Amino acid sequence: MSAPMPTGLRPVPAVRRAKDRFVQALVCLAFVLAIIPLLAVLWMVVRNGLARFDLEFFTHSMRGIGARDAGGGAYHAIVGTLEQVLLTSLISVPIGLFTAIYLVEYGAGGRLARIVGFFVDVMTGIPSVVAGLFILAFWILALGMPFSGFAGALALSILMIPVVVRSSEEMLRLVPRDLREAAYALGVPKWRTIVRVVLPTALPGLVTGVMLAVARVAGETAPLLLTVFFTDSINHDPFHGPQMGLPLFVFDQAGRPSDTAIDRAWTGALTLILIVMLLNLVARAIAWWRSPAKRGS
Rank of each mutant, 00 (worst) to 15 (best):
V188A: 05
Q84C: 15
I161N: 14
I78S: 06
F249M: 07
R166T: 06
R63Q: 11
A25L: 10
V214E: 06
E169R: 09
F239W: 14
R264E: 03
G144L: 02
E181Y: 09
V130C: 11
M62F: 05
L174W: 01
D69P: 03
M160S: 08
A100N: 01
S92E: 01
G187S: 07
T267M: 13
V165I: 14
F138R: 01
A137K: 10
L55S: 10
G107W: 04
P11M: 04
I135Q: 13
R16V: 05
R16Q: 02
L281A: 02
S61F: 13
A142W: 03
R180C: 14
M5E: 03
L154W: 08
L143I: 05
P223D: 07
L203V: 11
V120K: 11
T227F: 01
I36E: 02
M123Y: 15
G66A: 05
V41L: 11
V46Q: 14
K294N: 05
S297N: 08
V195E: 07
L248C: 11
S61Y: 11
L179I: 14
P13K: 06
P223N: 09
R111A: 06
Q253A: 10
F31M: 10
I36M: 13
V195I: 14
T59H: 13
R63W: 14
R114M: 10
L133M: 10
P94A: 00
I101Y: 00
I91R: 00
Q24H: 11
L206D: 02
I36F: 10
S233Y: 08
A182L: 14
G96I: 12
G187H: 06
A34G: 08
K19Y: 13
R173C: 01
R52E: 05
Y106H: 12
I194E: 02
I35M: 11
A113I: 09
L212W: 11
I126Q: 07
T99P: 01
T124H: 03
A113R: 11
P37H: 03
S2L: 03
I101T: 00
D69A: 15
P4G: 02
L97Q: 00
S167K: 15
F230R: 08
S128H: 07
W266V: 09
P13M: 03
I95M: 03
T7E: 12
E181M: 09
R192T: 12
V32Q: 04
I234M: 10
W43I: 02
I126W: 04
K294T: 09
A183I: 04
L278C: 04
W43M: 03
G49V: 01
